[in-house]
Every structure is written in structure tokens, then in C-alpha cells.
Amino acid sequence: MIRLSNLSVSEPGYTAGAGASRPLLEVENLFVEFHTREGVAKVINGVTYDVRAGETLAVLGESGSGKSVTAQTIMGILDMPPGRVAGGSIRFHGRDMLAMSAEERRKIRGEGIAMVFQDALSALNPTFTVGFQIAEQYRIRRGLSRGEAKRRAIEILDQVKIPNAKQRVTEYPHQFSGGMRQRVMIAMSLALDPEVLIADEPTTALDVTVQAQIMDLLAELQRDRQMGMILITHDLGVVADVADRIAVMYAGRIVEQANVHELYANPGHPYTIGLINSIPRIDEKGQELRTIKGLPPNLMRIPSGCPFHPRCPRAEQVCTQQLPPLLQVGPTRASACHFAEEMVSRG
């Protein structure tokens, strides 16, 4: 566990997006627990990742792998209690957010780091027009007049490609279709021009054709604004075109981190292989879908050794006893598997 903090996936010299500047947001060795009546659920067990300006990091994992909880901890919207940060740090521009006052953290939200939620209908206040909700941010945070704030709201709705933004600004969330609503949600989070955008499964609630449009839009906005983006998803298909790097999470840990191409071409962890194999393929039509056997572990009783070993096709004796640390297995990639070197070099 200690060795995790020595992880150097993002050494200087590793370049992505807008050059080798210091990462905007660094999560280091983060531990989060939930204290419940049944016991302590260890939801995040030493997560380390970072994102730079102009870069998209995809965080991939099954439900319950801790990807959303990590994001909520970054945003400071985790319910505490029952949640508790048990260790680690979250640095924004090098400053530890977990050590900041509540007021300081609040000021970062929206302007420094913003978040797009999964279900836009429930994430928008039903009692106010979308224009009012967006304009309010300009009025409160930027001190703009009503008229100016509304003009800005129309502008940002235009930027997320809502047709006829000038008219639609006076409409209520329920009057928008699912895809348009997600665009409103994106406009809302981009209103204050954040440097980092966290998108928590932004397309899960949408149908497939709209999913592609929203992903394209997010990618385009990220590129134009040179934002750092953390894209949380359980859908490998979604991330291929958009992400620069992928971090795969399992049982509250990062099990593999790599560039997109490397990860797809030559996965370095049996869990990643399982995920890639379980994408339905057109040439296997009619055959049974391939799945990863078993269920994600109960976070109150995480298996000894490598938490993936009960489901892992290549598990050996060592896997049941020793927790494999996340180690560098290539210039830009890391894997937490006892056999990582072997797997990567073979590919």
C-alpha cells in the first residue's frame, strides 16, 4: 500500500495535451470509507490519478468500483457522515483541497472544478427556467446585471449547440428532450469557465444516437477551452475516441492506467482484458455475450491479496496473499497485477 504513493505515472516528461505543465488536479493515495451500521465499507483504497489542462482522463469501472465516489470527494459533495476521507490528498493547482476551509472549497466549485451529472432532469431545478438557473451563476459569482447575465446564458446555450437558444432560455427543464437537457446541464457546468470538468456518466441516461452527439460535444468543448476533463464511465466504447488516458478502477483501486491506444491494443491487467472482451461485437452476433464471471467484491469484506483474484482467470497462489501494487510497466503506463510485465511484454 505504501508503494502506491511512489507511483510515477505522471513523471515530468510524460506529455499529454497541453504540454508538460504541472497537473491541474492531482488525487493522491486517496482513501474513503463509509461507516454504516453493518460495518466499515472501504470504498476508495488508495486512488491516485491526475489530470492536466487540455487532457481527458477516462475513469472506467463497474458500478461500485468507487469511480463516482472519487469524483464526489473531489467536488466535496460526498455526504459525511456516513462518508469519511481516511487518507490521501486532493490538490488543485498544487494546493490540498482537503485542508481548505469550506468557504475556500466552495469558491473552487463551479469556477475551478465543475461537474456534469448523469441524469440532467433531476439535476436541474424544476421550478426555474434554464436561463434563470444559468444566469444566476453569472449574477452571484460574477456580479453581472440581470440583462447581461441572461445574454451570457444565451451565449453559453449557443455554445452547447442548443438550437434557438434565445427562445429556449425561457423554458423549463421538463420542456427539453433528454439530449437537449444534458446540453443544458453541460452549459450550466461550463458557465463559470471551469478549468477541470468532471463528467459522471454523462450519457448513461440517453439513447445511443444522442450519446454520440453528447460525447462529441464534450470532446469539442474540452478541446476549445483546453479544459482538463475527467470522464467517468462504465462503457469502454464511449471513451475510445474521446479520452487521452484511461484509469481502470476495481474495488476502490486503480488497477491499470495507460494511454488509450496502449490499453486497447495490449491491456496490462486481466480485469481490463475482461472488460474489453465483454464489449458486444458484431462478428459474434448470435453467440452468448462474454462476461467477467462472478460479482464485484463486497466492500466490507474485500478479498485478501489482489481483490480481483476470485474472478481472475489467471490467478495463482500469490494473488490470494499479496496485494499487487500499481507499478510502472511502460513509459506511460502502470498496472497492478503480479503478472503485468509478462502480459504487457507479450503483446
Binding site: P12, G19, R22, A53, R151, E195, R225
Partner: peptide
């Protein structure tokens, strides 16, 4: 990220692209 020799400059914030929020020329609707 734990390299002490790393340049601790604040992350460069590239300007917002033309047509973005800060352009004064944006037509006023």
C-alpha cells in the same frame, strides 16, 4: 508529481477560444 525538481508554475491557462465567453466582439443578441 512527487518530483521535487518539477516546475511549480501555476498551470498555464490557455485563453478561451474565439467565440468563447470572453470575446468582446460576440454579437449581442
Amino acid at each position: 508529481m512527487s518530483d521535487p525538481g518539477e516546475n511549480v508554475e501555476a498551470a498555464v491557462r490557455p485563453g478561451v477560444a474565439p467565440g468563447g465567453l470572453h470575446t468582446a466582439e460576440t454579437p449581442v443578441p
